[in-house]
Structures are given as structure tokens and as C-alpha cells.
């Protein structure tokens, strides 16, 4: 099977039951994406597939041969961090770091969803979604951080989103 991950071509000989997550972690050496539950419950495995965030543990690798897949390794490197990665470091948006690649991929995908105007459960107006701390918390609730660095995660994301203190405090409903 052929895959395009982080702009690179990969070939792999796979058991068809292999998830997209296990393809990366167990076959391609891309262990940045984490497995916290393997059941779509924690978000540690979040990747961007054709620009959209998905739980890569819930989808089979074989379904993604024609897709553009971006994992945490494709966002930045230790020497050249993506702005979201840099913000997580500066705001201490983690502790153990195990949820972190998923949080960061999810945050990048989430900001794009907001840009496209997709509303969330807490959006007051279903036609024009404006970001706030409350919106960020809601939209990031598919990513569990058991260390519970949530306040710092919200700080990091709102900085990357360029929110002013006043914008951060707007309540949705």
C-alpha cells in the first residue's frame, strides 16, 4: 500500500486490520502520534487528514491511500517549531507530554474549522463562529489531558489565534 504522510511517500505491507495510527507508530517509525485509548475517546492520536482533524485510531490505514496525511512530525521539528508547538512550550500547555501531539494537531485543525465558520455546541450564532476561551475549551474537549494542563492549553491556542483579552472572555450562548 502507498501513503503520503507529511509530504513524503511511504510503502507498507500491512495487515488490513491496521489502523492509520498503528501504521504510523508501528510500521513507519512515526511515533509522535500517541495511543491513549484506541477507541476514539481521548484524542491522543489526532492527525490531519486532508486538512481535517481525525482520531487516527478509529480509521483503517487502507482507507487513506489517496489522502494527504499530516502528523505532529509534519508540523515542525525541535529546531523549527510550528507556532502552535512554540506556544505550547511557552505557555506550558502540557506536563507528561503524552496528549500533546494530539492537542497540537487538534488545535491546528480546530482553528481552521473556525476560519471556515463552523459553529460548535456553545456558539451563540450558528452562521458566524467567533473564537473565545469558551469556544476553544468546547472545541478541544475531544482531547483529554489527564495531567489537566487545560488552562495553559487554552492560553496557548488563544495566543496563536490572536485573541485579545476581551475576545477571550466572550460567552457564547
Amino acid at each position: 500500500m502507498h501513503f503520503t504522510i507529511n509530504g513524503q511517500a511511504y510503502d507498507a505491507d500491512l495487515d488490513i486490520r491496521t489502523s492509520l495510527l498503528d501504521l504510523c507508530r508501528e510500521h513507519l517509525g512515526l511515533t509522535g502520534s500517541k495511543k491513549g485509548c484506541d477507541h476514539g475517546q481521548c484524542g491522543a492520536c489526532t492527525m490531519l487528514v486532508n486538512g481535517r482533524r481525525i482520531n487516527s485510531c478509529l480509521t483503517l490505514a487502507v482507507m487513506h491511500q489517496d489522502d494527504e496525511i499530516v502528523t505532529i512530525e509534519g508540523l515542525g521539528t525541535p529546531e523549527n517549531l510550528h507556532p502552535m508547538q512554540d506556544a505550547f512550550v511557552r505557555h506550558d500547555g502540557y506536563q507528561c507530554g503524552y496528549c500533546t501531539p494530539g492537542q497540537i494537531c487538534s488545535a491546528v485543525g480546530m482553528l481552521d474549522e473556525v476560519k471556515k465558520g463552523w459553529p460548535s455546541h456553545v456558539s451563540g450564532d450558528l452562521t458566524s463562529a467567533a473564537l473565545s476561551d469558551e469556544e476553544i475549551s468546547e472545541r478541544m474537549s475531544g482531547n483529554i489531558c489527564r495531567c489537566s494542563a487545560y488552562p495553559n492549553i487554552v492560553d496557548a491556542i488563544s495566543e496563536v489565534a490572536g485573541l485579545t483579552p476581551a475576545e477571550r472572555e466572550v460567552a457564547g450562548a
Binding site: L30, I72, E73, L75, T77, P78, F88, V89, D92, G97
Partner: peptide, 14 residues
């Protein structure tokens, strides 16, 4: 900031 921060946010920490 955390000494190992860059390794964690890039998925490089093993």
C-alpha cells in the same frame, strides 16, 4: 520553559 519541551511538542520524546 521545560527543558524537554521541544521534544514533547514535536513527538520526538520516546
Amino acid at each position: 520553559p521545560r527543558w524537554e519541551g521541544a521534544a514533547k511538542v514535536t513527538g520526538a520524546a520516546p
